[in-house]
Computed example of a mutant assay.
Amino acid sequence: MTVWNVMYEDWQLECCGDRFAVGDEVTWQLLVDATASKREWAAELAVIEGPVESAGGGPVVSSGGVTVPWTGTGAWPPRLHLKGLLKVERHGGKWPRTTGVVRGIQVVSQGYREENLVPGERRLRPVDRCPKRFAHVGRAAAGEKLRREETGVLVALEVVE
């Protein structure tokens, strides 16, 4: 069994996600966000490496019990190496889902100055159950330069390989 860190963004959950708790079995479509900041997410970045295969919704790569879509172009390589943040995708195409057991949940909050994300201002707060709604603050509190937004949950997902 392998434990993967998976980001479930606030808007995805609030739109059409179901609440879950530590110990629950879940089935999600996952993808690799290669644009995630290596500085901010260093410990959570996943490496998915394996052969590109054909699935009902298009080419996918499977590794360590996780299946993600291959979004590259050109000829298929015999093996593919994807690195980035695993994310739940509720609004994309159709590809095989990943099933696992939730071993941990942390609410992610991020500091912003005006509309810009502030590096190093990410906070994680452990919870036993995923919230359905997240704290969204339109501006900084009085006397503060930094505003904090809850941007989703980071889930420790244990999958069978």
Score class of each variant (00 low, 15 high):
residue 3 V to Q: 01
residue 3 V to W: 00
residue 4 W to Y: 02
residue 5 N to D: 08
residue 9 E to A: 03
residue 9 E to I: 03
residue 11 W to F: 11
residue 14 E to W: 05
residue 19 R to F: 04
residue 20 F to L: 06
residue 21 A to I: 07
residue 27 T to L: 09
residue 28 W to G: 05
residue 29 Q to Y: 14
residue 32 V to D: 02
residue 32 V to H: 08
residue 34 A to K: 12
residue 35 T to V: 10
residue 35 T to D: 15
residue 36 A to M: 06
residue 38 K to T: 15
residue 41 W to K: 04
residue 42 A to W: 14
residue 43 A to D: 14
residue 45 L to D: 12
residue 45 L to W: 04
residue 45 L to H: 08
residue 46 A to T: 10
residue 47 V to K: 04
residue 50 G to D: 10
residue 53 E to I: 07
residue 56 G to M: 14
residue 56 G to Y: 13
residue 57 G to E: 10
residue 59 P to F: 07
residue 59 P to I: 03
residue 60 V to K: 01
residue 62 S to F: 09
residue 69 P to E: 03
residue 70 W to F: 13
residue 73 T to W: 10
residue 75 A to I: 11
residue 80 L to Q: 14
residue 81 H to W: 08
residue 83 K to Y: 02
residue 90 R to I: 11
residue 95 W to Y: 06
residue 96 P to F: 01
residue 99 T to D: 06
residue 100 G to A: 02
residue 100 G to Y: 05
residue 102 V to I: 04
residue 103 R to P: 02
residue 105 I to P: 02
residue 112 Y to L: 13
residue 113 R to A: 08
residue 115 E to S: 09
residue 119 P to R: 03
residue 120 G to M: 04
residue 121 E to D: 15
residue 122 R to W: 05
residue 123 R to L: 13
residue 128 D to P: 08
residue 130 C to M: 10
residue 132 K to A: 15
residue 134 F to A: 00
residue 137 V to A: 06
residue 138 G to I: 02
residue 141 A to K: 13
residue 142 A to V: 05
residue 143 G to F: 04
residue 144 E to A: 07
residue 145 K to F: 12
residue 146 L to N: 02
residue 147 R to M: 04
residue 148 R to N: 01
residue 158 E to W: 01
residue 160 V to Y: 09
